[in-house]
Design a protein around this nucleic acid. Structure first.
Lengths: 199, 199
DNA sequence: CTAATATGGCTAACGCTGTTAGCCATAACC
DNA sequence: GGTTATGGCTAACAGCGTTAGCCATATTAG
């Protein structure tokens, strides 16, 4: 992982990458479809996100959508891209508004709060095959950079992100035994990684 | 989380729970179906696991399967149960065969190795809605116990498991940037949690 | 031993999914 | 003004999980 460095507050910190641009701008109809898709997905879950349902929401017939998209996964790709931009924005912001929290705690809190409030979008964006080739260049690196910033180490960054994703996805899927004190679990993980950057 | 304690090697360690029994034994045809389902799923992925395909493998017609299962998810439930037993066995064994590794390192290594070598079964067992109500009583607690044993604390146990699951599922879905040094990432996470139990 | 019942196959079909082919009206362009 | 691209439409296909209903065999009850 190649990363530029700059001096910030006397410490060597990874520079913040530039927010990438979308590959190609969307036509009106495409943008509208993605909007509708997002609303349906977030409101009613992946099961409701069907081609016919999207068409119905736009008052056209299902096959007409194929004049704008080559397949359903292309719509989902747009949603994944939006989700990654959103998460990137939220996590970058958490770096600048840590308050009295440690950078790691701030990042984790922001990540958890945002992702849990967009469960279906998060699941879509983080489960199954990752369409790396069809995403804007630099998006993945930009979205992942905050994890590197707060740890200062690529391996620790990935480990921290893995912990955060595991927590979120398991919480979303109701995977922890009933009555689990997840606040405490987040705290335990936070401390574990905080201890790693102090040394 | 209520856990019995016993004295082991001078330390207070959580007792190992008893391996639960299956709720009801399977008829021949049911057992055969689950076997076939597992083979198809592991060999060709979730997309190949269709009712018609299962029937074809057994030389019967698709609707005939409904004489043995009320729905497809019941077959998947059996696979989830098997997967949890397998993972539980592997992780419990890792506790007794740590070698020169720390208990945490041993557990994580065993978990990673096993889960990565059964990708489709792991995805099925750990993604989406968790059918807690339809699993054998005690299975969840038994399978989760090793995480508690190596940490000595429920919150730390859940945090460690979340890290491990995040790592495995993200690795399975090819979610880490190409060229990532995942060995190093596992090591970083391992150290982070090991440091938490020393203190 | 016979009659009733349960077991486990079968075919046909339904409603849903994503998707394709092909037709046609309007809009834009040389 | 003729040509082409845009973006609708209907009809239809294959595959999905699933249901209804029929029927032969196996098991059990009287």
């Amino acid at each position: 992982m190649m990363v530029d460095l700059l001096t910030l507050e006397g410490e060597l910190l990874p520079s913040e990458l530039e927010r990438p641009k979308r590959v190609q701008s969307r036509s009106n109809r495409v943008a509208q479809t993605v909007m509708v898709a997002r609303r349906v997905l977030e409101g009613e879950g992946a099961g409701a996100l069907t081609v016919r349902r999207l068409a119905e929401e736009m008052n056209i017939q299902a096959p007409s959508l194929y004049k704008h998209f080559s397949c359903k996964t292309e719509v989902e790709l747009a949603l994944i891209e939006e989700s990654m931009f959103d998460i990137g924005d939220v996590t970058h912001q958490a770096l600048h508004e840590s308050g009295d929290l440690s950078p790691i705690a701030s990042l984790l809190t922001a990540y958890r709060t945002h992702c849990l409030s967009h469960p279906n979008l998060y699941r879509l964006a983080t489960s199954g095959h990752f369409p790396r080739e069809n995403l804007p260049e630099g998006l993945e690196a930009w979205a992942g950079n905050p994890w590197f910033v707060v740890t200062g180490d690529p391996s620790l960054a990935q480990a921290l992100w893995s912990f955060a994703h595991g927590m979120v996805i398991l919480e979303l899927d109701d995977r922890y035994p009933p009555g689990s004190d997840l606040e405490s679990t987040w705290r335990a993980g936070t401390v574990a990684f905080e201890q790693m950057v102090r040394n």
